[in-house]
Design a protein around this nucleic acid. Structure first.
Lengths: 214, 214
DNA sequence: TAGATTGTTAATCGATTAACAATC
DNA sequence: TAGATTGTTAATCGATTAACAATC
């Protein structure tokens, strides 16, 4: 994937800021200082100011940050001003769950279609989303100008599907299969999310030698 | 959560090594050098050797690493030699998907029960896992010696559920609700996995100023 | 204005990479 | 043995934290 000049660590904190700012706005908070936001999010005030200044100065000396403005600015940075057409390949448990995940609808993501080879039967609906045979994927992507492809297939076919998505013109791939997908030569962004990797960091900590904890 | 002496960056690479080693073993590879493993995983040989040496020397000079031994050693570090009793609170899309996720069964995780307040109706089965009223959670945890609690509830109740889990004696929490759960004063490990945070890093990259890419 | 708080530079800390002696 | 490759120390790089002048 292409590497931006803003470090990955900073980028991965932005959605977190966004989440907290949405909460603050809901609670009617109008302004917030980096120090208070730091206490709220568990980060240091210094880091927050550094992070925001990767994208320009959003605050005002002596005042802090306007919650709504900052929230909207970060939404823009994260690309949330746009609407995204999404397809999901692999209509198993995870694929179906994501098709039904209302949080995404609220944030401007439309699941336009599910693709699979077998079950649930092609032609059925999963919460209003039609399941297609995977052979039709490329044609669908081109016709509906799909932005994001989600891969929830078994590991064995994930890389092949990713290549086909890239070939068909998809620009962003969100991969849940337990294999790292990367398409460096193509102009495609890939975000790998490995559920089991996350779970194994938890079991690591559960089994950590308590003597080594501090 | 307690902080180990091994850095978080190292810990988060261990499941990845494990994944690749499982693959290598499946493909009949018996030994591998840090350099080859580096090319395979996309990391540097130096980093791999540093990472492994956080836990002791697993290799042999002039030879490299025995794939099966290394895989088993890392499995042990990640706590995969044990079996885990798991409950899921929140039987919505994500909760049901995780209850059905066969990958976990293969790795020694048993989903003993689902808990919810309403749908799917309490008393029904989701792929062989019974749905209980959430009031029964504490009693169930104590009776069945549950190790891990998965939170797939709405945001609004996630923190309360986490506290109840900790109170009931659960030692590890895997939180999917879009709110950071942390229980610093309790002896509980929490792994937050925010699906939408991951998605937003993808949309960030999709909207990145191409001039800033290199 | 005075107080508060940012934007930004400098200092520190930690993680990654490089190098190489040890040794299989 | 000679070649290969680790384990480990030292050097570098980058990210976080601290400090403070700018300014609202």
């Amino acid at each position: 994937m292409v590497r931006s000049r803003v470090s990955d660590a900073v980028i991965r904190r932005m959605p977190r800021y966004y989440r907290y700012l949405v909460d603050l706005e809901k609670n009617g908070v109008e302004r917030i200082s980096s120090e208070k936001l730091g206490r709220y999010t568990g980060l240091t005030a210094s880091q927050i100011r550094q992070d925001f200044n990767c994208f320009g100065g959003f605050g005002q000396q002596g005042y802090g940050y306007n919650v709504t403005d900052l929230k909207n600015t970060i939404a823009g940075i994260l690309g949330l001003h746009k609407h995204y057409q999404v397809i999901i390949v692999g209509a198993g448990n995870v694929g179906q769950a994501l098709a039904n995940y209302t949080n995404f609808k609220d944030e401007g993501f439309t699941v336009a279609a599910l693709f699979d080879t077998q079950s649930p039967p092609v032609g059925t609906f999963v919460n209003g989303v039609l399941v297609w045979p995977v052979e039709k994927m490329e044609a669908f992507v081109r016709e509906h100008q799909v932005d994001i492809g989600i891969i929830t297939t078994p590991q064995s076919v994930a890389r092949k599907i990713a290549e086909r998505m890239a070939e068909a013109g998809i620009k962003g791939i969100w991969n849940f299969a337990p294999v790292d997908v990367s398409l460096p030569e193509q102009d495609v962004c890939v975000e790998n999310l490995h559920l089991s990797d996350s779970l194994l960091t938890l079991t690591y900590h559960l089994n950590e030698d308590p003597a080594k904890k501090e």
